[in-house]
Write a protein that binds this DNA or RNA. Structure first.
Lengths: 224, 224
DNA sequence: ACAAATTGATTGAATACTCATTCAATATTT
DNA sequence: AAATATTGAATGAGTATTCAATCAATTTGT
């Protein structure tokens, strides 16, 4: 197998072709790892399941990643990065009001690209290992922390704007985090019975209860 | 090793000693499995890690359980049963009002015996495998279902009693489930930073938002 | 009451298989 | 020609299951 087969036959060799090819190969392996984990779990994911999916040789994994463990960590980082990019790009429109931005964060959390069954399965595989693997825990909590900070700041703005009393921004942001995680799990455990739409409704219901001057309850007819 | 060493030297042999001993041995193995999973995760749990902790021989596991997989399933069932017993016993006092019963269910969810770091680690290890193992998923969703039904019924009573409009019992019960799962994960991921007390506060805050005539907001001073 | 027979519990080495890593040989690109 | 990418068999370690041998408890027979 040649790097030409991954770069594409129509692309001209560039100065960075070797480097680009190396990145593409790494991504290919990481994508295969995600597929493997979603299909077999972490415990059932071996170098063989990954390379079978990627259609590459066993040795190539160790050429690109120091060890299986390194591959797994890089896979989690990739997931986390993708997730982070999703909600951050929702905030780039500086014309949005705080509640619109907060709504965008919620939307991103349950975006089909992020909140797919495959991705959720991988996320929870890593959560399942996180209790005794500090490295996974750190990767996860770092991205949680950033989103929580941003959400908290947005809540502060909403609270100021709406003169809400007895509402603490950080507290609300923490509730949101709990709801995000809990509904991710419910979507995973109840395929077809608890959907992304259900989760969005629930979160928006919570927002409406908390900030009634900024968020409306989801319409009853929207619920399934 | 004899059954006398597990039954205790002071206990007289009873007609069911063999049967009781067999159950005690099974429990010993299951407890060791819980310890092993919490320490090594499911992927790192082998027959050796389990028997090392239990101080029993490798062969004994297969004497009592058909396979490693059977041991794992039985372990999950044991966890589930323990959890179920916790919240059900909270409801045995028939003198409680519906909101007191609902509060008891919430308390049970974060009871130290149930919501210990060790137990949570095991729960999430199984959740991590649940996406591709229908058997684990079924065990979990069965006990979820029961609790959701009871919570839903209690919410209905509260709604009727308090004349709450635009509040759907099943909807609220589903939010509660999400919060339970989400805060379990947060407790696991943020040891010492997000505690059972924090989780209880958050859930009670949600209850107060939803049923303001039955639940009060946790006092600000109670928050850490 | 006691000994012998039967039943059940326990052990861990043997077995066959699986797995992650290594690296010499080969292929490809510059 | 030199540098880099790729391959997969070899290697040594790890794993779940099996089962003959041994030990312990209970039942049966005298």
């Amino acid at each position: 197998m040649t790097y030409a087969s991954i770069v594409g036959e129509n692309e001209k060799p560039l100065k960075q072709s070797r480097s680009a090819a190396k990145q593409a190969r790494r991504k290919q392996l990481i994508d295969a790892t995600i597929s493997s984990i979603s299909k077999h779990g972490i415990s059932g994911t071996t170098m063989a399941t990954v390379t079978d999916i990627a259609r590459l040789s066993i040795g190539l994994v160790n050429f690109h990643f120091k060890s299986k463990e390194a591959l797994l960590e890089e896979t989690l980082k990739t997931l986390a990065q993708e997730h982070r990019e999703q909600w951050r790009k929702s905030l780039r429109n500086s014309g949005l009001a705080p509640e619109e931005k907060l709504r965008a964060i919620v939307q991103a959390q349950f975006h089909p690209q992020i909140c797919s069954r495959k991705k959720l399965a991988v996320w929870f595989s890593f959560f399942g290992e996180a209790a005794y693997r500090g490295s996974y825990r750190k990767i996860v909590t770092d991205i949680d922390r950033e989103r929580w900070d941003v959400s908290g700041e947005l809540c502060r703005q909403i609270i100021n704007e709406g003169d809400y009393e007895n509402v603490e921004a950080d507290y609300v942001a923490k509730s949101l985090e709990g709801l995000f995680d809990g509904f991710w799990l419910n979507i995973l455990m109840y395929p077809g019975k608890f959907t992304r739409t259900d989760a969005l409704d629930q979160v928006h219901n919570f927002m409406a209860l908390t900030f009634p001057r900024h968020f409306k309850h989801p319409k009853t007819s929207d619920r399934t």
